[in-house]
């Protein structure tokens, strides 16, 4: 099924890209590490992992990835951004989702924590959120939908095809979020096929 949908890309400039790969592969996804613009060719979906946002932004500049990433996001293909990945999408960085992130809003490494989240669309069981030097979403645009909150603050959101989370869903064995992301990718693919049939 993954072949039909095309590979899922994981931005691999720096950060926790392997953890995402480990969750995606058993779900049937073919995974490709993305380090330069040509790596985006033919991808069905893209994951922007956690890492250091400053390091990742410098890498994006060095590789000339800003415009190709914007094009990818605008194409409607699903994008999943976690922690630093969400920061680099915000209004102060790539501007691909209409929100603002406050970096290290919960404090430094020592203030990392875990919390059970009610995640919209992931069933009734709580999802264990791992927050490491997590950002806080301090401003949400009108089209941004909240998928999960912690202490009344949004920690997972969606704007059209872009998912952004301040925690690390890849650091738990729970694959529900990635599964949903992959399924969305397949749905998109079906739509593409239908479109071709119609044409």
């Amino acid at each position: 099924m993954s072949r039909r949908a095309g590979p899922v890309g994981v931005l691999a400039l720096q950060g926790g890209f392997e953890a995402h790969e480990r969750l995606l592969r058993p779900l049937g996804a073919e995974v490709r590490q993305v380090r330069m613009p040509s790596d985006l060719d033919g991808l069905a979906a893209l994951v922007l992992p956690g890492g250091e946002s400053t390091t990742m932004m410098l890498g994006i500049e060095r590789e000339g990835l800003a415009a190709p990433l914007a094009e990818f996001a605008a194409s409607g293909r699903p994008v999943l951004a976690t922690c630093a990945g969400a920061i680099i999408l915000d209004d102060e960085h790539l501007g691909l989702i209409d929100l603002h992130c406050e970096r290290n809003a919960y404090g430094g490494q020592i203030h990392s924590f875990e919390a059970d989240l009610k995640f919209d669309g992931a069933g009734d069981d709580p999802f264990r959120g791992v927050f490491i030097r997590a950002p806080r979403f301090t401003r949400l645009g009108d089209d941004v939908v909240v998928l999960a909150e912690h202490d009344s603050a949004p920690v997972a959101v969606r704007e059209r095809n872009i998912f952004a989370m301040s925690f690390h869903p890849e650091l738990t064995a729970d694959d529900r979020i990635h599964r949903r992301f992959i399924e969305m990718n397949l749905v998109n693919n079906v739509t593409d096929i239908d479109r071709k049939k119609a044409a």
Partner: peptide
């Protein structure tokens, strides 16, 4: 999330 990085 230091993986893949350089610590100086």
């Amino acid at each position: 999330m230091l993986k893949g990085g350089v610590i100086m």
